[in-house]
Simulated scan of single mutants.
Amino acid sequence: MLIAPPPPGPVDFQVVKVTHESRIERSSADGYHGVSTTTWKLSRASRFRMNWMAGGLYSGSGRINVKGTYAIDVTTPFPGHCAFTAATGDTTYPIVAPAPFDLTVAPNARRPGHALVGFVAVRATLTNAYLGTECSHGGGDEPGWEETETLDVAPAKLRARRVTLRFAGTEAGATWRTVIVLQRKDKR
């Protein structure tokens, strides 16, 4: 069954569910052991808008309001022990504290005929600006935002009344799972 393209114009969605859980753990023979976790969820009403244009063009964006917690605990033989937790609104470690973010949609230039859905938000990591060198492991082999925060979907999926976006995976000692559910708002 083919879905007819919507007429040009905006289509508004209410963000009805947002959850995120991520974890990374590393150990090495030299005595390094680190664990980081992050969780966040929808904190208050959020909206998302898809703009359908003539010629099959489209774009979408919306601010997603979340609250949650980032935690890290690293022990090294240098000697070093670094551990802290940062919740939304934290003023001591604001860069790693979960905060509202933008969800965006655009045509995927690398895969014609598909939409690229993405966001940039706090996730578990063993590398951040607050760790001293005694607790740093380099972090170059952690999954990047391309793996954890982007999704390639058929544009038709974004025309549904209810859209569920799942970002999930496991790589290099890291696991992540983000679910964002959008409910189309009926025009009155």
Rank of each mutant, 00 (worst) to 15 (best):
residue 3 I to L: 14
residue 6 P to A: 08
residue 9 G to Y: 11
residue 15 V to G: 01
residue 15 V to C: 00
residue 16 V to Y: 01
residue 18 V to L: 02
residue 18 V to H: 00
residue 19 T to R: 02
residue 20 H to Y: 00
residue 23 R to N: 08
residue 25 E to C: 07
residue 26 R to D: 03
residue 27 S to K: 13
residue 27 S to E: 13
residue 29 A to I: 14
residue 30 D to A: 07
residue 34 G to I: 03
residue 34 G to Y: 01
residue 35 V to G: 01
residue 35 V to L: 06
residue 35 V to M: 01
residue 35 V to Q: 04
residue 36 S to A: 14
residue 36 S to W: 02
residue 37 T to F: 05
residue 37 T to K: 06
residue 40 W to R: 00
residue 40 W to L: 00
residue 41 K to S: 12
residue 42 L to C: 02
residue 44 R to Q: 09
residue 46 S to L: 00
residue 46 S to G: 01
residue 48 F to S: 00
residue 49 R to F: 05
residue 50 M to C: 01
residue 51 N to R: 05
residue 51 N to K: 04
residue 52 W to A: 03
residue 52 W to Q: 00
residue 52 W to T: 01
residue 54 A to Y: 01
residue 54 A to G: 05
residue 56 G to W: 02
residue 60 G to R: 01
residue 60 G to L: 01
residue 61 S to A: 07
residue 62 G to A: 02
residue 64 I to F: 02
residue 65 N to W: 02
residue 65 N to T: 00
residue 66 V to T: 07
residue 70 Y to S: 02
residue 71 A to L: 05
residue 71 A to N: 11
residue 71 A to H: 09
residue 72 I to F: 07
residue 72 I to K: 05
residue 73 D to S: 14
residue 73 D to W: 06
residue 74 V to H: 03
residue 74 V to Y: 03
residue 74 V to Q: 04
residue 74 V to F: 02
residue 75 T to R: 13
residue 76 T to K: 06
residue 79 P to D: 08
residue 84 F to M: 04
residue 85 T to W: 06
residue 88 T to H: 04
residue 89 G to K: 09
residue 91 T to R: 03
residue 94 P to L: 06
residue 97 A to Y: 11
residue 100 P to I: 12
residue 102 D to W: 14
residue 104 T to Y: 09
residue 105 V to N: 01
residue 107 P to T: 05
residue 108 N to C: 06
residue 108 N to A: 08
residue 109 A to V: 09
residue 109 A to F: 02
residue 112 P to M: 00
residue 115 A to S: 06
residue 117 V to M: 05
residue 117 V to S: 05
residue 120 V to S: 15
residue 121 A to P: 02
residue 123 R to L: 08
residue 125 T to W: 00
residue 128 N to G: 09
residue 129 A to V: 15
residue 132 G to S: 11
residue 133 T to N: 11
residue 133 T to A: 12
residue 135 C to Q: 07
residue 137 H to E: 13
residue 138 G to H: 11
residue 143 P to R: 07
residue 146 E to F: 13
residue 146 E to G: 14
residue 150 T to C: 12
residue 152 D to C: 07
residue 153 V to I: 12
residue 155 P to M: 06
residue 155 P to L: 07
residue 155 P to D: 05
residue 157 K to I: 15
residue 159 R to P: 11
residue 159 R to L: 15
residue 160 A to Q: 15
residue 160 A to M: 13
residue 162 R to T: 15
residue 164 T to R: 13
residue 164 T to Y: 06
residue 165 L to V: 11
residue 167 F to P: 13
residue 172 A to Q: 14
residue 172 A to V: 12
residue 173 G to E: 06
residue 176 W to D: 07
residue 177 R to D: 14
residue 179 V to N: 10
residue 180 I to N: 10
residue 180 I to W: 05
residue 181 V to R: 08
residue 183 Q to A: 15
residue 184 R to Y: 08
residue 185 K to A: 15
residue 186 D to R: 15
residue 187 K to L: 15
